[in-house]
Amino acid sequence: MNKITRRQALGTTAGALTVLGIAGATAHAAATDSRAATTPAGTVDEVYQGRRIQIAPGTGGGHHGGHHSPGLPTVRIDGRELHVMQNADGTWISVVNHYETFADPTSLARAAVRELQGSQLAPMQMGGMA
């Protein structure tokens, strides 16, 4: 899990990778940045405050890692999935920062890292309260 990825080996900083992640979400950036073509738009793999953040964009009918809403990105911190949700206005929340909205999954994941203060996410458990 802690092996250095190819993109980390490129020597880019966490900040630069995040720029890639966000910029990759636009068609313009995908067309002009050759690196973006190697990973799906919205993909993020960075180390932030010592924690590895990985974001895999959602796919239309896909089903990622057990979460319930196809189309949502899968956000992982040190390999553990973070439950995330998108609001109707396009902003994002997570189960770790549930009452505060964020502009994009990367800032959401970084806020979760700050909130966790080094702690590992617990395995995601869906409701089952119906």
């Binding site: 319930h68 439950h83 949700m85 189960v95 869906m126 409701g127 309260m129």
Partner: peptide, 15 residues
């Protein structure tokens, strides 16, 4: 606590 978190995670704007 368990009940509340179950609803927090399943209540969605589009569902």
């Amino acid at each position: 606590v368990t009940t509340h978190n179950g609803f927090i995670m399943s209540d969605t704007d589009s569902g």
